[in-house]
Computed example of a mutant assay.
Amino acid sequence: MRPSLLAPVLLLAACAPDASESTAARAAVSGLAPRAASPAPAAQPSWPDLPDFADPRRFMDLDSLQWPRVEAPRPADMQARLAALGIVPVRGTVGGERTGESVRDYHLVDFSGDGTPDVIYQGPPYAMNDGELGTYEGTRLRMWQVRGGRAVEVLDRPTAMQRIYRAQAGAPLRFRAIQYGCCADPAWTMEYYAPYEGGGAVRYSPHARIGGTVALVWPARFWSAPRRFRVNSAGLTLRSGPEIGAGEEWSGWEGHGNALAEYAAGARGIAIAERADATGRVWWFALMDGRTPPRAAMRDDDPAAPVPLDRLGWISSRFLTEEP
C-alpha cells in the first residue's frame, strides 16, 4: 500500500546536476573508473553525496519519469527495433490470452552517453517458469547498452527509475530509483545509482540506499542548511513521527510504537528540519548514516546489499551533539 504523498507523480526527471552536487559526485559521472563485474561496496567519503538532498522538497518528492521528455524518438515499429537488437519481450499465454511485457514499456534512452540510444524496460515484472508465464508485484527495471548494433543487458532490478541526473554531454547518466515493499509491506527503499565499467559496458550499482516507511511524517518547514550530528546518549530512538506515539499496528514495529530503529552513542546523521511535540520536546527530521547502524530496528538491512542502508525518521534533539 502506498500513501498518497508517495504515490508516483508524473513529473520531469531529467535535469542538469543540482548546484549543491559535490565536485566529487560530478567527477564520478564525467568519467568511468574500471570496476569488477561484481563491484565492491561504494565509498561514501562525503556522505550524504546525494544530488538532491540539499533541496529538501525535491528530495522528498518521490516522483517518476515522464518518458517522452527523456527518451529518443521511437521507431514506427518498436517490436522490430527490439528484435534487431536481440531483445525479446517476456510474453506468454494465460487463460488463452497472450499477455506479458508491452513494447510501450520499452524506451530508448542514451544512458551510456556514447550517442547511441540504449534500451530501458520499466513495467510489470514477468518471467517464464517451466514454459509458463508468471507475474509478480511491483515494477521491474531492465537496462541494455547498445554496442555494435546489439544490446548488452547491464541491469535487472525490482525497482522503478524516478529521476535522471546527467553531469555533462557524453557522460553516463546517474539515476534515483524507488522500490516499494511487497504484499502490503510498509517499507520502501530509495537508491541512487552510479555508473561503472564492467565487461566493456556501462553498468550500474547503488552508491546510496535510503529506507523509509509509509507511516513517515514529512516536515513542512526546513532549515536554511543541514546540520550534522552524533548521538551522545546510551540509546536514542528514530521514529516515524515527531512524537513518542503508538504507531499503526499494520505499519509499525510490533511492541515499539512508532519507533523505527534504536541507535547507540556515536551514531551519526544529518538533519534538515525540526518540530516540537505537545510536551515541548524538539525532534529533528534526520537521515541516519548506515555506516553507524542501529543496534536494533524494525527493518533489518540486507547483508548482501552493496552499501549500508541509511534511514529516514525523527529523532529527539535532546541527546544529539552537532558536528561541523
Rank of each mutant, 00 (worst) to 15 (best):
Q145T: 12
G181N: 07
R230A: 10
Y204E: 00
Y165C: 01
T139H: 09
E153D: 02
P206S: 04
F222D: 04
G235L: 08
R203E: 07
M161A: 15
W223M: 02
R140S: 14
N232A: 11
E132P: 00
S224F: 00
F229Q: 02
P206V: 05
V217K: 10
P117N: 03
M190V: 14
V154T: 15
V202R: 03
R142M: 14
A194P: 01
R142C: 12
A177F: 06
V119C: 02
A177G: 03
F222T: 01
Y165N: 06
R203D: 05
T135N: 11
G123K: 14
L141V: 07
P219K: 09
H207W: 08
M161G: 02
R209D: 00
T159C: 11
S224D: 13
R150A: 15
D185V: 04
G138V: 10
V217S: 07
R174V: 02
V152A: 12
Y204W: 13
V152T: 05
A167P: 02
A177C: 15
Y106E: 04
V152M: 10
G138W: 08
D156Q: 12
T139L: 06
A234M: 04
E132C: 06
P186A: 05
A234I: 01
L155Q: 10
R227G: 01
F222C: 01
M161Q: 06
W144D: 06
G170L: 12
Q145I: 06
N232F: 06
L216F: 10
V231H: 05
G199Y: 13
A194W: 01
L155S: 10
N129D: 13
A184T: 12
A194S: 15
G211I: 01
R203I: 03
L155K: 08
L133D: 11
A201S: 14
R228D: 03
Q145K: 07
D110P: 06
S233C: 10
D130T: 11
R203A: 15
I178T: 15
L108H: 13
A151M: 04
S224Q: 12
R140Q: 14
A234K: 03
R230V: 07
G235A: 11
T135A: 13
C182I: 14
I178Y: 04
W188I: 03
E137Y: 08
A127L: 09
S233H: 05
P117D: 03
Y193N: 01
A127N: 04
R140A: 15
A187S: 11
A167K: 04
L108T: 10
A234W: 00
G149T: 07
R221G: 04
